[in-house]
Design a binder for these strands. Structure first.
Lengths: 137, 137
DNA sequence: CGCAAACATTAGACGTTGTCTAACTTTCTT
DNA sequence: AAGAAAGTTAGACAACGTCTAATGTTTGCG
């Protein structure tokens, strides 16, 4: 089902290496919004000798090549999101967890009417509490 | 014109002190979105012996008491905004400068329809380029 | 193959941002 | 004036991200 990761990397002009594959394996498939050190911790589980610099380099490379987006949502850290299509974000007050909100769930009007700003992209950032989904799964 | 700052602080349940007034003088009146260390640098101009801890303490106190809001918009730092009414933010790609966008300039629809989230507040974060205001004021 | 160039990885130093602590000073209360 | 409470200070500390210099690994080409 999933296209081999090495292939994905090559398509994006990135030479696959053992370390990059290990990073890709986690970060391109997670639903979380990990920061770099969370990625490092995860990847160390499989490739214990990987260095911090490599993880940071790899994440930056992935962002540059369009495999990831990075956001400034949590305090004091960049978080990464493999979901590169536009969407909004909800930040849970209690846990700090970040949830994706589908683009179509909200509508922002009059962006194009703003004077003095040439908007390249935008998103709505919501904060509050997650409420339990009524009834299981 | 401006109500004395000491008064403003007392109204918000904050004992005025020389250091707090010096911080207030800058941060409550600026149009910028300074981070804590920018506030420190500014305030040191007038009160050279003020410590970093005091500035951080004071800013956190002001946020707690509702005189300031803090946002996570720039990479790796919290920024403070004396404009406590809801509004949106535009981040300039080139300079990183942050501009306030009036609440009424945009309209976000369907926030209340979101399932699974109890939204306490939200804002639109826009990124792009500032365009020169046609004709200079 | 064998070598060189290009690329990738590594450990650790470094800078910035923010928090914490313990000692000290100021202010308030009586 | 004396004690308690509140505020300030310097410096240590931790987390996050960047950079550098040295080392390893691939790749291409004779």
């Amino acid at each position: 089902m999933a296209k081999p990761l090495a292939e994905t990397l090559r398509v994006h002009d990135i030479q696959p290496s053992a370390q990059r594959l290990a990073v890709a394996e986690y970060v391109l498939r997670t639903q979380d919004h990990p920061c770099a050190d969370e990625v490092l911790a995860r990847v160390r589980g499989r490739v214990p000798m990987i260095s911090r610099a490599t993880v940071y380099n790899t994440l930056n490379l992935f962002v540059e090549k369009g495999l990831l987006r990075q956001f400034v949502l949590a305090e004091g850290r960049l978080v990464f999101d493999p979901h590169v299509a536009p969407h909004h974000h909800f930040v849970d007050d209690v846990s700090g967890a970040i949830h994706d909100v589908p683009w179509e769930a909200l509508e922002v009007r009059r962006v194009e009417k703003l004077r003095g700003f040439e908007v390249r992209e935008y998103q709505v950032v919501l904060r509050g509490r997650r409420t339990p989904p009524r009834q299981g799964s």
